[in-house]
Structure formats: structure tokens, C-alpha cells
Computed example of a mutant assay.
Amino acid sequence: MQTLLPGITMERVPTRRLTTAVLSVAGRTGRPVLFVHGNVSSSLFWQPLMLALPERYRPLAVDLRGFGDTDPEAVDATRGLGDYADDLAALIEALELNSVHLVGWSMGGGVVLQYLTERPAEHAAASVTLVAPVSPFGFGGTYGVDGTLCDPDGAGSGAGGVNPDFVARLAAGDRGADSPTSPRQVLLAHYVKPPFVPDELDIFVESMLSTRTGDDHYPGTSRQAPGWPGFAPGDRGVLNTMAPTHFRIEGLDALDPKPPVLWVRGADDVIVSDTSLYDFGYLGSLGAVPGWPGPDAWPPQPMVAQTRGLLDGYAAAGGRYREVVFADSGHGPHLDQQAQFLAALEPHLAQA
């Protein structure tokens, strides 16, 4: 099927690391706005927003390695999201984007943060927008606003927590709606808030199905662990990049210059939240995973509070951020509340 909306073009850009697929809006030459997608998705999810941006901006959307039409290079999870962050830096360099607005969704928010903190005085960001970003202390297996590990092995995080039927359906190219673990149904139940159905649903399903699967990609490798719930992250693949033993954002307060940050999230997000349906601490508290050690040893991860703590530290060091929460919105507020999202994004870009 045709996956590009009218007005959107795609090119593969050679960089010093790999060849990266980039979407753009034909004819736009203004200040660049670079969109970075999340896990199990691709640049295709950004198309409606790219077309809706005012003419004075040049919207660009990248496919991360192993997604969409970018080279499917292996992912070294021991660097956290470093492979993706370095790829992003290489693309910014190749496109000669000396001042760019960065917008990162979910895992893409973590990519943007790691890009910034590894280049505190060299980044090219004019502004930063974090859309339902992964916690700065990774996904799963931590508690407290400082991201303390529940288990020293990082148990309860990484590739071992994935639903194998979902992975199988991704690998098989399942476009149906007959199972709650089909990509289509996961999108409708978790990416957006039901009963919202995006006009571009079929395109977004194709975007999800562009995810490479396997040990080097999604979900990655896993290993057994003595602590509950019995698995710990491996060192390869997508989900392990966000394990708290591999990924931790520090040094955001050291950025110089400090771009303004807009943090946008949906009030009904079930993926990145303090009550995430993908967090084993929360699932254990619901009785969905047997053997839960209890709230003192393994409370649900306070993902939202952890991000707020990071940004409060950024503000205390002289930066500024704004948090915007949309009612009736899920993990993709740019999808199910596009008009409100644009109303928050446009002044943020203009004031940067």
C-alpha cells in the first residue's frame, strides 16, 4: 500500500555511520524540526503533524536503525540508546542542521536526551520537545525519583518482558484485528486512547510492521535472573537499550546552551506512566504476575515523577521547561489530540 501521504517525500541519506531514511515535506526550506519516533514505529507516524506545521518550518522525520527504511544495523544495548543517539548526531551533521528543533516520542525522547547529554556543548538543538518520553532511568525495574534499582541485575526489565505472541505477529506481518496482541489492536488500545481511530491507521500499522525482529533488534536478548520476576536484560536489541542497567540520563543540567524543553503527555497513557501496563512492578501489584515481592521491595516505577525530577533539576540549573498534559489522550498525544498538540508545539518553537 502507499504509505506516504501527499506532500511527503522520502530519501535515504548517507551518513558517516549508516544510510538513514528521512521524510520531509516537499518545498519546505524554513527552520528544521526533526521528529524522532518511538519503539515499534517509524517516521510514518509523524506525517500528519509534519503536514500540519506552519509553512515557516521544515519538517523532517527520521527512521531509527532497524525501523522503516534505515539500514538495519545491529543495536548494542550496553550503550543504552547510544547507537540511536550517535546515528541522530551523524544525520544532523550530514544534513548540516546547525540549529534544529528536536521532537522525540517515547523511546525517541530518550534518544534525544542521550544525544544532548553526550554533547553538552556541541548539540545543535534550538528547542526540545519530549512526547511521552521514556523515563530517564529506563523502563522497568526502578523505584523512587532517583531511579534506584529494585534488583542489582536489572531484573524485570529488557527483552524478557515482551509478549512473545506480539513479537510473532510483528515478524509475520499481521495486519489483522483478531487478537489483542496484533499490532493493529495494540495501537488502538495503547498508542492512542480508545475509542479514537486515526485516519491513517493502515499506514501506522505498516509503520509498526517495519520493525526488524530478532536478537539484534526487537526485542533483543534476555537472560535468567535469580530475582523476581526471573529475567534480566541482555546486551543486544531494542528493549535492552532502555533497561536501567544500560540507560540512565545524567548531566542534562550541564547543557550549554540550554534549549527550552516542552514535555507533552497524555493523561491516559498506559505505556509510559506511573501505572504502566508494561511495568512488572505495576503488573505485580495488580496480581497479574505471581510472586510480586510487595510495594516496599518492588513498587510500580514512577515514570512520570522520574522525568519531572530530571526536568526540575534542569530548571534549577538555569534551563526552562513546560509540562503539558492532555485529557482523553494516550501514549501518542500528537495522534489523538493533534490540534491541542499543535497549539502547544507552535508557540514553543516560535519562542525558542
Rank of each mutant, 00 (worst) to 15 (best):
G330C: 10
D328K: 08
S127M: 12
T3Y: 11
A317K: 09
G104S: 10
G140L: 02
S276W: 04
V62W: 08
E73S: 14
T307G: 11
P198Y: 00
A26F: 10
V75K: 01
G160V: 01
V33Q: 03
G38A: 07
V205K: 01
D153V: 07
P198W: 02
Q340K: 12
T20C: 12
L113T: 05
S99K: 14
D151A: 15
G176D: 01
A126N: 11
P72H: 12
A172Q: 12
I92A: 07
V145W: 08
D199W: 10
L310R: 03
A77Q: 07
G30F: 06
W263S: 05
N240V: 08
D268I: 01
G38W: 01
L209V: 06
L91C: 05
L116P: 03
G291D: 05
G109D: 02
P120I: 00
D71N: 11
S24C: 10
L64G: 04
P48R: 04
Q47N: 13
P233D: 00
M107A: 14
G154T: 07
P299M: 08
A61G: 07
F204R: 05
Y321S: 13
L239F: 14
L262D: 06
F204D: 03
L345F: 06
D146T: 05
L116Y: 03
L95M: 15
D63G: 12
W263I: 00
M303H: 10
L262G: 06
A339W: 02
T19V: 13
S222K: 13
P229Q: 00
D215A: 15
T117G: 09
V192H: 00
D202P: 02
E323L: 14
D71M: 10
V40P: 05
L4N: 09
T3A: 12
G156Q: 02
A267V: 02
R184K: 14
W228P: 03
P48I: 03
I8Y: 06
V197T: 15
D76S: 11
Q47F: 11
L102T: 03
E11G: 13
P183N: 06
S207I: 04
Y278D: 12
V261C: 09
Y218A: 01
L188R: 04
A52D: 13
R28N: 07
V62A: 12
S179W: 03
A132N: 02
A254T: 15
Y218F: 15
A317C: 13
G309R: 15
G140C: 11
P295Q: 08
T70C: 12
Q351V: 12
G313P: 07
D69N: 15
R12N: 14
H217V: 06
W263Y: 15
G108D: 04
G38R: 02
G313C: 08
S210C: 11
D215V: 14
D269Y: 02
T19L: 00
T142C: 08
S179K: 03
L102V: 06
H246D: 08
V131D: 00
L81Q: 04
Y321L: 10
H334V: 00
G294A: 09
T245F: 00
P226C: 07
V325E: 00
V325F: 02
T78K: 09
Q338S: 14
D174R: 01
G251F: 09
L286V: 09
G109C: 09
P180D: 08
L5M: 13
V324N: 02
F35L: 11
F247G: 01
L239W: 07
A159P: 12
V238T: 15
N98A: 14
L91D: 02
H331N: 05
